[in-house]
Design a protein around this nucleic acid. Structure first.
Length: 449
RNA sequence: CGGAGUAUAGCGCAGCCUGGUAGCGCACCUGCUUCGGGAGCAGGGGGUCGAGUGUUCGAAUCACUCUACUCCGACCA
């Protein structure tokens, strides 16, 4: 993508409403624009990151055996009356009336709707286990939206719903999502730490939140440091096999939010040199809640003995529109964002130091074509701007690698590659640039870790 | 929902107290010179001063009402 033809409205000044780093940087890097309290447009650069995050989530959901579909944002109130939540949900739910004065709502979650779909089509125990998920916009009329898209009213959520014959099978479904989540966050360059959690208003028995450590996190968390370095289950993990050892391995180490434990309990349970008290951003939440919705909504299947069985359900959420700022909170410096390659809006930016100079333009155009042909997701800064301005923009928006070419390098046949994360620079022959950059980037895509 | 605050050009701000031609920096446009860390000079464009009502010869400025947004506290992917 040629930057001169792209839409990247970076800001030099910091908008005053932004309090935390990720919000400031998302505004400055031209990723989002606030349209009203808790409502955001995703500008091209931001949207591109969001789509990469979404793609990783989809790949890992699919890998674990979940099946993607798409449900509408607007739901009928009648469905929510069946579960009793229409009245229970309160003001957080945005209620809407259509022209015929029928009652609707903008979905804050989809348990009722997915249960309705399930009960309509699935009639036999032979069709289980089943896990259906979608990625769709949700609306929760938060009392106080804040921190940009970290806590917005309209937000994107991946929500998966599992259906099983009994609790033992449902726990297996829960563990599949548990493993999928470990891999999902890792692939985004994050350490997503599972923590025992309160089941809250959704109710149920078994619940883990996944947290990313960041100073600006909204939750206080207590954990065993060993969790930070734990390798996640590999891509060839057998999701149809027994995941209990993995689950036990991860959950045997202490990790809980301050809602579930206190410092004294933590101190007593964890050796002193392993204790870590920090703050965390909740980026995912998984629940097992049994027959809470299936019973009132009559989601039954026929068992082997011909009798009805009420299915056991779980729900599993990740908020991509929260994950994006969480990644920024975890990875930035005073110059801007530092994207991991796997979710970076572009993998590298080619900086033409003297746009308008015929020789430099020709060399850069050629290099850009070669880099693109090599399968790299490239941004090409071909604007007629001072070098310093281009470097500052590249640093701010956080592209992992800058490949820098100007008249000086052209004369000596050399280009420079700057690593955004470390600040390290290397000079190499122009002819080697494509292979070198490919070699740096490809292993970091983490498609099959 | 309680408490505090803000609203003037795309962004950041001054002007308001003490009413009298709406300003600064960045960004934008034109020209020339620059060109390896947010360039320089010269010229230029852009505003219902959040909205309404009132006071006044005259309101960004004073008064009242409303709205939007932000921050601090209890809930949530």
């Amino acid at each position: 993508m040629r930057l001169s033809r792209y839409f990247l409205p970076v800001l030099r000044d910091v908008p005053k409403e932004a309090e935390i780093a990720s919000h400031r940087l998302m505004l400055r890097a031209g990723m989002i624009r606030q349209q009203a309290s808790g409502l955001y447009s995703w500008l091209p650069m931001g949207y591109k990151v969001l789509m990469k995050v979404q793609k990783i989530i989809e790949e890992e959901q699919n890998r674990s055996g979940a099946v993607q579909l798409l449900m509408p944002t607007i739901q009928s109130a009648d469905l929510w009356r069946e579960s009793g939540r229409y009245d229970a949900y309160g003001k957080e739910m945005l209620r809407i009336e259509d022209r015929h004065e029928r009652e609707f709502l903008y979905g804050p979650t989809n348990e009722e709707m997915i249960t309705d779909i399930f009960r309509t089509y699935v009639k036999s125990y032979k069709d289980l286990p089943l896990n259906l998920y979608h990625i769709q916009w949700k609306f929760r009329d938060e009392v106080r939206p804040r921190f940009g898209t970290m806590r917005s009213r309209e937000f994107l959520m991946k929500d998966a719903y599992s259906f099983d014959l009994d609790e033992a099978a449902a726990v297996k479904a829960f563990q599949r999502m548990f493993v999928a989540y470990l891999r999902t966050f890792r692939r985004m360059g994050l350490v997503g730490i599972p923590m025992r959690a309160d089941t809250g208003p959704i109710g149920g028995d078994l619940s883990y939140e996944f947290h990313v450590l960041a100073d600006t996190g909204e939750s206080g968390v207590f954990l065993d440091k060993d969790l930070l370095d734990k390798p996640v289950p590999p891509a060839d993990t057998d999701f149809r096999g027994d995941l209990d050892p993995i689950f036990k391995d991860w959950t045997s180490l202490f990790a809980a939010t301050d809602e579930m434990t206190d410092e004294a309990a933590f101190r007593a349970a964890v050796p002193e040199d392993k204790q870590l008290m920090a703050r965390g951003i909740e980026v995912g939440h998984i629940f097992y809640f049994g027959t809470k919705y299936s019973a009132p909504m009559k989601a039954n299947v026929t068992g082997p003995d011909g009798k009805d069985i009420t299915v056991h359900m779980g729900s599993y959420g990740i908020g991509p529109t929260r994950v994006v700022p969480a990644i920024i909170e975890a990875m930035h410096d005073e110059n801007g964002i530092i994207w991991p390659v796997s979710v970076a809006p572009f993998e590298a930016v080619l900086i033409n130091l003297k746009a308008g100079d015929a020789d430099t333009d020709a060399a850069c155009d050629k290099l850009y074509a070669e880099l693109t042909a090599a399968g790299l997701d490239m941004l090409y800064d071909d604007r007629d701007q001072p070098a310093g301005s281009k470097f500052a923009t590249a640093d701010l928006v956080g592209i992992p690698y800058q490949i820098i070419l100007g008249p000086r390098g052209l004369k000596s046949g050399e280009v420079e590659i700057k690593h955004r994360k470390t600040g390290e620079r290397e000079t190499l022959p122009l002819a080697n640039a494509v292979e070198r950059l490919k070699g740096l980037i490809e292993p970091q895509r983490m498609n099959d870790i």
